Amino acid sequence: MNRNMNAVPIHKMQGCGNDFVFIDNRKLALPVSAMADWAKKVCRRAFGVGADGLVFLEEAPDASVDYRWHFYNADGSRAEMCGNASRCAGLLAVKLGFAGPVHTFGSDAGPIRAEVDVENCEVKVQLTPPKGLELNKSVDMPGLEGTIHFVNTGVPHAVYIHDDAAGLNVKTLGAHVRYHAAFAPAGTNANFVTVLDRNNIHLRTYERGVEDETYACGTGAAAGVVVTNALGLTESSVNVRSSGGEILGISIENGCVHLKGKALNVYSGEMYLEALGLTLP
């Protein structure tokens, strides 16, 4: 890329309504020190491209993975992992020549294995093993009774089970849980789950870093299934209906959690750095 140009190629991707901007960083070579500022400006709705997160793909640091990513939330915070973005990354990586249909990429949470069906735009990823499972934590919830459960499925997730998740004020309740002292200092994502039957749940997620409810959350869907399965409420293979109405398939296989669903390249084009108040170092 000509570094005198003020236009940078981008790829807008979405998975179940979670939208992301991807940048191929092989030629751009943007340093990590500048990425958080780029995320805040690129992801800003109306004034930027608009997205839940910004992802940079680049060459692998060693032979253990095919490539690596740098993932940033819309507020500029760096996240260890994002399930729906990982599916988008898998599809785009094949299209851009980073790797073949079955590959592994490096994330801050660890290596992520992806199986890509390019023709049908469907991707299955094996998330990092869930850790830190805590059931029935005593955390106050304004106006609600019961307990909260917790698990890290690449990033931290609190899970609250309710008969009518659709009727809850997720933005208010989610913010309360996200910043609760019980999850300090890192905070947590907050998920609200209704168990429909043993193979189906409805999930709504307030995402840390976005600071609002999103249409879907892959690691949140994984957390919802890990928790409900541990409580004996669901089987190990579950369809998760997201806020956006899409279905994510979650399966627990030999202690590992797999996430499967559609990933779509909405458009590819160029963004003009001057319009966003950005420059190349």
Rank of each mutant, 00 (worst) to 15 (best):
E274H: 03
E58N: 13
A182M: 00
A34N: 13
I112D: 08
A51L: 02
Y206L: 07
M35A: 10
G143N: 08
N229S: 14
G100A: 13
L127V: 11
H258Q: 07
G76R: 00
L28Q: 13
A63V: 04
E235H: 12
F47E: 12
L133S: 00
S33F: 07
Y215L: 15
R241F: 06
V116S: 10
A186N: 10
I201P: 05
L259N: 07
V159A: 04
P31I: 06
H157I: 03
W38H: 06
G97W: 05
R178S: 13
R26E: 02
V49N: 00
P185A: 08
H11I: 09
A158M: 07
Y72H: 10
H149G: 05
C43Q: 07
G174T: 10
C121H: 15
K131A: 11
H176M: 03
V102S: 15
R198D: 06
K137M: 14
H176N: 11
P101N: 15
E253H: 14
I201K: 02
T205V: 15
N199I: 02
A29M: 15
E58V: 08
H70S: 12
S242D: 05
G76L: 02
F183Q: 01
A221Y: 08
G146K: 06
R44H: 05
L96C: 08
S107P: 01
N189T: 02
T279D: 09
S138T: 10
L168D: 09
R44A: 12
G83N: 11
M5R: 15
V94I: 09
Q126S: 08
T228D: 07
R68K: 14
N239A: 14
S268W: 09
M5Q: 15
L144Y: 06
R204M: 11
G83Y: 04
I161C: 05
S268F: 11
P9Y: 07
N200T: 11
Y272C: 08
A109W: 04
F105C: 05
F192K: 01
V195E: 09
D164S: 15
T219H: 10
P111C: 13
D75C: 09
Y267H: 13
R44C: 02
A158L: 05
N120W: 11
K95F: 03
M81Q: 02
G174S: 04
V139I: 12
N4T: 15
A186W: 04
V257T: 13
S86Q: 05
A175T: 10
V195F: 06
I161D: 01
N136Y: 15
K41M: 07
D52N: 11
L273T: 13
V159E: 04
H70W: 14
Q126G: 01
V118L: 15
E122P: 00
V102P: 01
I161P: 01
R26C: 06
G224I: 03
E270Y: 13
S251H: 07
R26W: 04
P111L: 10
E246P: 06
G48T: 08
S107F: 05
V55K: 02
T188K: 03
T153R: 09
S242T: 15
N25V: 02
G277P: 00
P61G: 05
G154Y: 06
I148P: 05
N265A: 13
L259S: 06
R113C: 04
M13W: 04
A109K: 07
Y160A: 03
A34M: 14
E211V: 07
A175M: 10
L203W: 05
E119I: 11
N239H: 13
R198F: 04
A79S: 13
D75N: 07
D140M: 10
N2T: 14
E235Y: 01
T219C: 11
R178A: 12
